[in-house]
Amino acid sequence: MELFAGFTLLQLAVALATGLVASFVRGLAGFGLAIILVPVLALALSPVEAVLTTNVVALLIGGTELPRLLREAEKSAWTIIGLVFLTTLPGLMLLAATPPDLARLLIALVALSAFAAMLFPVREPEQPGLVTTGLTGAASGLLTGFAGMPGPPVVPYYVGRAIPRQMAKSSMILIFTFAAMIGIGSGIAIGEMHWRLALLGAMLLPVVIFGTWLGRKADGRVSDRTWRIFVGLVLGAAALAALVKLL
């Protein structure tokens, strides 16, 4: 039975519950909104709807934090954002042309790849070279379009280095906010961004704000090592849950 903008009660319940969990992880880890929300939403909505709804939520919540993000983010974030702008539209076009079941499987595998990248040892704090940064930005844009997940390349780039936790979190969230805006623009360009998805994203915003607040409260109680372990566990659990459901 349709209750809101063409969505059923089950779809709304899945979106609200997953949004709360994903935003708590976002507040604690600095990422996780898309990596958790997209694979689960894609089981209740079409993959394209899941990606674009998550982009709406990410843009709205990131916009409320923009002044702080601009102060704290590493300069490399702007290079990555520029490359995301160039590569998001091709990724979204590929998603629109991919059969839904295959797209769901690939999205789950993308989340799993981020977990695998977190298994590498923590690197020195120095910013990686232009090639590494460029590949990170290009991959992030393609995955923003195809999976609504700019995070899998970006999380290891920042969390895998011995830089201050707050700088890593702010850099990632700044990228995710701009990636969401670019993703929505790409959705409009190919005719896949519909008003009902914007409404669903806006409806999720209060839940996401509350969950993010809870996550930040918890963040002050954990060490950097515990934080990095938590990041890895979240990535692995989200990917495995989506894969088990699909298979």
Rank of each mutant, 00 (worst) to 15 (best):
A5N: 14
W213S: 14
I61R: 04
R196E: 14
G236T: 11
A168R: 05
L199P: 08
I173C: 01
I209N: 01
V84R: 03
F115C: 11
G82S: 11
M193D: 00
I175K: 03
G151E: 14
A138M: 14
A42N: 15
W213I: 06
G6A: 12
K217P: 00
G220K: 08
A111G: 13
R165M: 14
T177C: 10
A34W: 04
L112M: 15
P128Q: 08
V21M: 03
L9K: 07
V110G: 03
L106H: 07
A103Q: 06
P121E: 00
I35Y: 00
A139R: 04
G137V: 09
A103R: 09
D101P: 02
V14F: 00
G32I: 11
L41W: 05
P90I: 10
G32E: 06
T136Q: 07
A138T: 15
A241N: 09
S23R: 03
A96N: 10
A189N: 10
L246P: 06
A96T: 08
I81Y: 07
A117K: 08
T98W: 02
F176C: 00
F31H: 12
A97I: 09
T54H: 04
M203Y: 01
A29G: 13
G82F: 04
V14Y: 00
L95W: 09
I35G: 05
A73M: 12
T18V: 15
G201N: 10
L12W: 01
F178N: 07
M93A: 14
A138S: 12
E74T: 04
A202D: 04
L59P: 05
P153W: 08
V207T: 15
E126G: 09
I173M: 14
S46F: 00
P156N: 08
F176Y: 07
W195P: 01
S140I: 08
G151L: 12
I36L: 15
G220V: 05
D219G: 01
R123V: 05
A50W: 02
L119D: 12
G129H: 09
P99K: 05
L70E: 04
S76H: 09
M118E: 14
T177I: 05
F31T: 13
T226Y: 00
I81V: 15
